[in-house]
């Protein structure tokens, strides 16, 4: 579980996060949503420790990251997996080497054991016969799968995903969403996903945190979000014609 208390982050005079307090639960897919510029990415980077917040605390388990020494932070990061928006695969390495990378860095396993684990997670993300290919030789959807495989290969306690569906067709996007949710439940990890894709919200939004101009404007789950009267949330949810039409049809039926 990750607990955030009164998190503030500024860049110069611009305050990007204005006192966010929330929690992300273990074994669930937790979504951070909001418009572009709402502070989602900064929030995610604060959670990852890539940005240091001015005030506020982020608790991983019982200890705040701000109170950890370098060794504790290093150990925590070994238990984190991250799926970046563009995959962030190492382009000089093959798929197999990319997935094996965390094992080589943090374990003392023999090469055969590492290869066995790599094949195991690549099979889990439905990616076979791509071991020897380079990232530039595979599709965007396959790159996302490799990124997920790399993120989970070392059995992380925390999985972070930044816009995992960006650049993917709707069908592949749903497959990736479902894969992340299945892995979250299977490995019982705390997953935090940064997205503005309403399909993801509907599919896997077990806990949703809505950010608006650096404030936490609403939180709930994927059934509550369609019933809320919070104007900022409804404006965001029904910003697409598809969702407006669905709402109109539901209103007519009611």
């Amino acid at each position: 579980m990750i607990r955030v208390e009164n998190l503030h982050k500024s860049f110069g005079e611009e305050e990007v996060l204005k006192g966010i307090s929330t929690s992300f639960e273990k074994g669930k897919t937790n979504l951070i949503i909001g418009q572009s510029g709402s502070g989602k990415t900064v929030f995610l980077k604060c959670l990852l420790g890539l940005f240091e917040a001015e005030t506020g605390k982020i608790f991983y388990g019982t200890k705040a990251i701000q109170e950890m020494n370098d060794d504790e932070k290093k150990e925590l990061r070994e238990h984190m997996g991250m799926v970046f928006q563009g995959g962030a695969l190492f382009d000089s390495m093959t798929v197999e080497e990319n997935v094996m990378f965390p094992l080589r860095m943090f374990t003392k396993k023999k090469k055969e054991e590492m290869l066995h684990r790599v094949n195991e997670v690549l099979t889990r993300v439905n990616l076979v016969n791509a071991n020897k290919k380079f990232p530039s030789e595979i599709s965007g959807g396959m790159q996302k799968r490799v990124a997920i495989a790399r993120a989970i290969v070392n059995n992380p306690r925390y999985l972070f995903c930044d816009e995992p569906n960006s650049g993917l067709d709707p069908k592949t996007a749903i497959l990736i969403d479902n894969l992340i949710q299945e892995i979250t439940q299977e490995y019982d990890i705390t997953t935090v996903i940064n997205t503005h894709d309403m399909n993801s919200v509907m599919e896997i939004g077990e806990k949703i945190v809505f950010l608006q101009k650096g404030n936490l404007a609403w939180e709930g789950d994927n059934t509550q979000i369609f019933k809320t009267t919070n104007k900022d949330v409804t404006d965001f949810v029904y910003s697409s014609d598809l969702f407006k039409k669905i709402r109109d049809i539901q209103n007519m039926e009611n």
């Binding site: 990852l48 420790g49 890539l50 932070k73 290093k74 150990e75 925590l76 990061r77 070994e78 984190m80 991250m82 970046f84 928006q85 563009g86 962030a88 695969l89 190492f90 382009d91 990378f101 965390p102 860095m105 943090f106 972070f160």
Partner: peptide, 17 residues
């Protein structure tokens, strides 16, 4: 620079490297 642009350096940092 390409590694910076494509977030590969961020990926290393997140892993604690």
């Amino acid at each position: 620079g390409s590694m910076r642009v494509t977030e590969q350096i961020d990926a290393l940092e997140v892993m604690g490297i």
